[in-house]
């Protein structure tokens, strides 16, 4: 069973702020899910992780396609806060 301090740390690593109620709830739920997936520990597998992907990467020529200024304006307009042609954010500290 995860302790609430562990959940707090996990949330910090995931970049999510949790309420104290959420911490308690998630401690129980995440522990149950980890308990469920732990059944994999009983399976014997080869030591090395071999790649067994069905797909192979399909590559194309690496060249810049570029976008129009209208598309650029569209993209920038999606930002929550803008100043001129720039995306605005809060100070780091």
């Amino acid at each position: 069973m995860l302790k609430t301090e562990e959940v707090t740390k996990l949330a910090k690593l995931a970049g999510i702020e949790l309420t104290p109620d959420e911490e308690i709830k998630f401690a129980t739920e995440i522990s149950a899910i980890l308990g469920f997936v732990n059944q994999l520990q009983n399976i014997k597998v080869f030591e090395e992780l071999e790649s067994n992907e069905i797909c192979e990467n399909v590559l194309r020529t690496d060249r810049v396609i570029g976008i129009s200024s209208a598309e650029q304006a569209d993209l920038i307009s999606q930002a929550p806060e803008i100043q001129g042609n720039l995306i605005k954010t809060k100070p780091v500290f």
Binding site: L13, A14, I16, E22, F26, E29, I30, I33, L34
Partner: peptide, 14 residues
């Protein structure tokens, strides 16, 4: 984010 998304993000981080 809703609860399910938060939960999965944290399990993934773990």
């Amino acid at each position: 984010f809703g609860a399910e998304v938060k939960r999965r993000m944290m399990i993934g981080t773990y």
